[in-house]
Design a protein around this nucleic acid. Structure first.
Lengths: 206, 206
DNA sequence: ACATGTGAACTGCTTCACAGCG
DNA sequence: CGCTGTGAAGCAGTTCACATGT
């Protein structure tokens, strides 16, 4: 398959949330213009994004909302359930564990890990917290599709190295540090300092 | 000033965290090659990024770590203290309020707001929680440089409209919804669903 | 000799504009 | 006729390669 730009994937997520919203309202058809207005893009961009994956509309008419929503869900890989573990049950990890919006999209948090012995066997959002000693074994057993890392900056790279070695292929990190993984591992990082700095840069340079 | 790409700003943040790390270790000089290795980019990219803002190195020698760190801090607007308010003191909002890494970079959380009367006057991370009724007045008084939005999806756009009307110019949103602001307002959105979907897309299409 | 700074070449994303089809 | 789907054109960001300064 042709390589798809990251920006295209991000926009597909935006289109999908709009489609699900109007699908809930019972709207039956929509157009690239509607999708563009919301997503802050252009109708040509919407059509180009979709064109990488097929032809989903009817010329002169637009798109069937349920059909397009189903197609985009499929494209994004949301047709199945994904098993997620959260490593590091501090404030952010605990907040994520309890976040319901997760499950709605097929992301099931089925494991929590922490290195602090005081937290082990406690529950967070209905799931028992295990020691990180169990992590390698569980990852090696293929228990998870995605790992979410919410440990302190200095622990992040060692943990990532461990789970990558155990076979983990997709990681979402909230640790405020630059991580490196082999190129067959998919890594995304959410770094709040970076987002705030993008704001202060914009505020300063005007 | 020439328009700077978002990707350049993100990389500057990465360079800075590396520079601060080695500055702490007492390293005195570095090179575009060193900076590239960590940031997962190329030395030409590093030099190009910096060249938009000036000439910071010495040919044949490299860069002075303290000088370059100071320069990048200045470029990113980190030379001053920024006053930040957090709107929505749920799990994520509370976690952010307590996050120390904030203050280290000059971001001072000086206001917390929530619409839930049960939370008002309670404290989180040492700061009293105020009603969102006070928000417009406080924003209009210029109390904050940046607003962080951690309210539920359905409340996000109304809150953003209110603070924008009151004069807020920089917003970081964690609400899982697409927001719209006038173009003189700087908005960044961290959307976890979008990050996870980028992972499942990658896992599915290989 | 070595590493920076930068115009020029290149790559790839976005926008345009129109042919195609309901 | 209206809106999609898509080559072609345009533009922005990245990479190359070398002149420049120490």
């Amino acid at each position: 398959m042709k390589r798809i730009a990251d920006s295209t994937v991000r926009r597909l997520s935006i289109y999908l949330s709009f489609l699900e919203e109007i699908e809930g309202e019972g709207v039956l058809t929509t157009s690239s213009d509607d999708l563009a207005r919301l997503g802050g893009t252009t109708s040509a961009q919407v059509r180009k994004d979709l064109s990488f994956f097929g032809s989903f509309g009817k010329r002169g008419l637009g798109y069937s909302v349920p059909e397009l929503a189903a197609a985009v869900r499929e494209i994004l890989g949301l047709g199945k359930q994904w098993r997620v573990c959260i490593i590091g049950v501090g404030k952010i990890g605990a907040a994520l564990a309890r976040y319901a919006g997760f499950a709605d999209r097929g992301f099931n948090v089925t494991g929590l890990y922490d290195s602090d012995p005081a937290k082990i066997d406690h529950r967070s959002g209905g799931i028992a917290i295990q020691t990180t000693d169990d992590l390698d074994k569980d990852v090696r057993a293929g228990k998870y599709d995605i790992a979410v890392i919410t440990v302190p900056a200095e622990s992040a790279q060692p943990i990532v190295d461990r789970i990558v070695k155990a076979g983990m292929k997709a990681i979402l990190s909230f640790a405020p540090t630059q991580l490196t993984v082999p190129e067959d591992v998919e890594l995304r990082t959410v770094n709040m300092a970076m987002e705030l700095e993008a704001l202060t840069f914009a505020l300063t340079n005007r």
